[in-house]
């Protein structure tokens, strides 16, 4: 083996350098630095100021104190966690269930796969407006159907208790297709021999699921959890299209607070919201990703 390597003409260090020049990084690097890195770093300064885009006045921690002392902003903070965890939890459960269903023996598998995936392609605004009508408390299709079978549905998006969860449900409806696809790919990667060996040992459906499928589909679970957490914690467009944070501010999340403060001209406060969101996302996503990937390596 060592000989084979030695006899093969190795490109010198210099030629490797010129074959794969570092300047290939520059076009992407310029965009990244100017439009992403600089604004991100600048946000850590402007978050501590009163800012009108022209004038900057350093105010210390004032923005963060405002952020956590005003009830409507604090609601946005806690709602972000609820929204992120509810959507990503439901996507894991429904995504895995649908994937198991769609990889089994079933009629019309192709049709079902397409149908589950299709909402992914519709814009959040389109989905939001459609569900605003479907979830209308009186005339909406959902509540009139429920009434037909004798159930009085909640007021969904207009009920302060339900608004945030209603949006989360719409989000799951729209996004479960991606989770399902990821799980289908993950299930396909599990070697059939494990199930055959389990059959010889006399294990049944539930045992297979708990001891083979669930542990071995873990990389897919990690991907689904991380993607939906990153998306869910930052989520803005669906919430804005359906409730605009209402009724009152009961379905506000950090991202919608950022937009509201921006609209009101409180640029410093809006940027402080961005910094809070940055901290929330990294403080959740980085440990979760570390945990999910470490366990995988150990096994």
């Amino acid at each position: 083996m060592a000989q084979a390597v030695a006899t093969k003409p190795q490109p010198t260090r210099r030629s490797v350098k010129s074959m794969y020049p570092t300047w290939f990084y520059i076009p992407a690097g310029v965009l990244y630095v100017v439009l992403f890195a600089i604004p991100t770093f600048a946000s850590f300064y402007f978050a501590f100021t009163r800012w009108s885009l022209q004038d900057v006045e350093f105010t210390g921690l004032q923005n963060f104190i405002t952020f956590f002392s005003e009830p409507q902003l604090r609601t946005g903070f806690t709602n972000t966690f609820i929204y992120g965890f509810v959507t990503s939890g439901l996507k894991v459960v429904f995504g895995l269930a649908l994937a198991l269903l769609l990889t089994g023996q079933l009629m019309a598998r192709g049709y079902l796969r397409s149908v589950v995936f299709f909402p992914v392609l519709v814009s959040a605004i389109g989905v939001g407006i459609t569900f605003k009508v479907l979830m209308d408390p009186f005339d909406g299709l959902i509540n009139s159907s429920l009434e037909a079978i004798g159930i009085t549905g909640p007021a969904w998006l207009t009920d302060p208790q339900w608004a945030l969860y209603s949006v989360a449900l719409i989000d799951v409806w729209k996004g479960v297709g991606i989770a399902t696809l990821i799980y289908i790919a993950g299930l396909a990667a599990i070697p059939q021999e494990y199930y055959e060996a389990a059959k010889v040992d006399g294990a049944g459906g539930w045992k297979n699921f708990w001891h083979i499928t669930l542990p071995l589909v873990r990389p897919a679970t990690a991907t689904v959890v991380l993607l939906s957490l990153i998306g869910g914690l930052r989520s803005f467009d669906l919430i804005w299209a359906t409730t605009r944070g209402g009724p009152g501010f009961t379905s506000d999340v950090i991202a919608s607070v950022i937009y509201k403060q921006y609209q009101a001209g409180f640029y410093g406060l809006s940027t402080a919201g961005n910094v809070v969101l940055f901290i929330v996302v990294t403080a959740i996503v980085v440990p979760v990703s570390y945990f999910l990937n470490r366990r995988e390596v150990e096994r």
């Binding site: 930052r234 640029y267 940027t271 961005n274 969101l277």
Partner: peptide, 26 residues
């Protein structure tokens, strides 16, 4: 370093108003 920056680009939410500020400057 590059790998780290790529992952950061996936996770970090863009800072809205500072981006507008940069765009205005340009």
């Amino acid at each position: 370093v590059v790998n780290f920056l790529v992952l950061a680009g996936l996770i970090v939410p863009p800072a809205v108003v500072p981006t507008i500020w940069v765009l205005q400057t340009l």
